[in-house]
Nucleic acid binder design. Structure first.
Lengths: 130, 130
DNA sequence: AGATGAACATGATGTTCATCA
DNA sequence: TGATGAACATCATGTTCATCT
């Protein structure tokens, strides 16, 4: 079916039918921005997201946060730094930092477009149906 | 786990984590509104949706349209009417009409809330990340 | 042949369990 | 014992196939 066998998979990040953006992408965007502002580890990022969106009624799951972070490492946008958690217990946590600022910026630009498009869809639905 | 065994499943229509509304619900809303305005059959509803959203880049699949329609019949919001398609071929099509206007109105109210909430999520993301 | 719908396949995401320091 | 992540389960949705007039 694919005429050029060597054409392979660019742009995985896509909604085949083009409906609203996916939660995973949404979370990746937030993980980047939050990491730009402050070094945090997974559990903190989860708590922060939940408290931020509590009023709106959105409560992301723990796994989805970790999956977003792992994705961003695969994309070479974030990198990890293992750290001994200060305090009594010797526990290891994983702090994230930006690995490639340009790649991060590019991803954000793409997500901006996705968010704008999603907003258009919702606004149109509100106009058409109410 | 469930203290009251007889409590059973009210409110199926829900996003467990409360992210954006699902495509199915979005299409059900449109199917109701379009049917209020004009009696149409499945394939026409599909074409209409696709042309309406072509500019935005959203192209719903045929099956998802039919699933939305079937759902609405299960909900007793729409009902069907088999009709011989006028023109040469004797072909049967299925026109939809509102079965219960109150139920339709109620569903729309609920979807309005879902759309508003989704819009809040997207607006917040635009504000927080850009 | 166009319209409908079921069957099938996959993707997105929630839930549970294991591990590690 | 809290943090991390993998394994598992399920739901949402796209694709393919069958049927009927």
């Amino acid at each position: 079916m694919n005429r050029l066998g060597g054409m392979m998979n660019m742009q995985k990040e896509r909604n085949s039918t083009g409906f609203l953006l996916k939660q995973r992408a949404f979370l990746k965007l937030y993980m980047i921005t939050m990491t730009e502002q402050k070094r945090l580890y997974g559990e903190q990022l989860l708590d922060l997201m939940r408290s931020e969106f509590k009023a709106i009624g959105y409560k992301p799951s723990r796994s989805e946060i970790y999956r977003a972070l792992h994705d961003l490492m695969d994309d070479n946008i974030l990198k990890r730094e293992k750290v001994k958690k200060e305090g009594a217990k010797l526990q290891e946590i994983i702090l994230y930092k930006i690995a490639d600022a340009d790649a991060a910026a590019l991803y954000k630009i793409q997500l901006k477009a996705e968010l704008d498009r999603s907003q258009l869809i919702i606004k149109k639905a509100l106009k058409d149906n109410f």
